[in-house]
Every structure is written in structure tokens, then in C-alpha cells.
Simulated assay, not measured.
Amino acid sequence: MPPAPLCPCSSGLRYRECCAPFHKGEAEPPDAERLMRSRYSAFALRDAAYLWKTLHPDHPYRSRPQGEVLRELRAFAQGHQFPKLVVMDRRPADAAGVAQVLFFAKVFEKGKDRSFVERSDFRHDGTGWRYLSGVTLQLKELRGPPEALTLATFPEP
């Protein structure tokens, strides 16, 4: 029997022991980093319903029709490959309840590198951590290797 697949979030763990319980609704990610990892895995696995569920109520997409957003998320996920995720930095929730995660997402579209770095904001909604917003930089906007960035050195757009 072949070994169980590794999780797309690049944690090094098997999917069933990492993001699967979150995707199946058996558990909530315990912190913002785990939520971010589970969302990356959901993109890789084309799980638009999970991506919708994990948007914070204050995220702009939540003001749009759910079906429309789900179609857009599905189309994006289907048109891209998500081979690797690198988490570079994280910050626990501040006084306003916002936690941050800085990550480098390897993403390809029809063989073209569409990788980016994002500083994501997350807030707990009473049930679990949810994606609130993010600032994304394309690799060409960076002055050095993306893995060298920290939250303190992330350039403001």
C-alpha cells in the first residue's frame, strides 16, 4: 500500500494528520498560521467551499453573492498549481484581535510562475480563525529572496 500523501501546505505531515480534519469540518485550526496553511491546501485541492467558510465576515467577498465567489475561487484553483508553501513569519493577535502570517506561495499557471509573498491578517470570529485581508507582492517587486522577509521588513506597497 502506498504511503498516505503529504499535505499540500508543506508542513511535512501527512494530509490526513494535518489539514484534512479542518477541511472535513472535524476541527478548527488552532491559530492563524494553521488556518493559512489549510487555506493554501484548500486552493491546491480545489476546495472552494472551505475557502468561503474561512473568510472573515468582514472580508469584502462576504458582501458578494456566495455562488459568484465560489465560482471565482474554483476557477482560480483549477487554473493553478500550488506546489510549495513557505511560512516566513507570524505574529499572534494584537489588541484588535488581528494575527498576521507572512508566507511565500509557489504558484504556477499553465507553466508560468505566479508565485507571490503575502502578509495576511486573520481574526477569530467566535467559531474559528478567519482570513480578513492580505497584502500581496509579486516576486518582481522584491529586492531579494522572498524567504528573507519578515513581518518587520515586509515592504509597504
Results as ranks from 00 to 15, higher is better:
A49S: 15
A95F: 06
Q66M: 11
E147A: 10
E156K: 12
V98Y: 03
Q138I: 00
G134E: 00
D47T: 02
R143T: 15
V117I: 08
K24N: 09
H59S: 09
E141Q: 15
E147Y: 02
L45K: 12
G134D: 01
M88T: 05
R130S: 05
L6R: 13
P60Y: 15
K24Y: 00
Q100A: 08
L55C: 01
S11H: 04
C19M: 14
G79S: 13
P8L: 15
E118C: 12
D125H: 03
P83W: 04
W129R: 02
P157I: 14
A20Q: 06
E33N: 01
R46C: 14
R16D: 11
F22Q: 07
L151V: 13
D58K: 06
A148M: 00
R74I: 07
G79F: 05
A32C: 04
R64K: 09
P57A: 07
F104R: 08
G25L: 01
P5Q: 12
E33Y: 05
M36N: 06
R62F: 01
A96V: 07
Y61S: 04
T136V: 15
K53R: 15
D58C: 08
C18V: 02
T136S: 10
P57M: 09
R114S: 05
F154L: 05
R90E: 04
W129N: 03
Q78E: 12
F103K: 03
V101Y: 04
L73D: 02
L137W: 00
A148P: 00
L139Q: 08
P155G: 05
W129S: 04
A95S: 15
V98G: 07
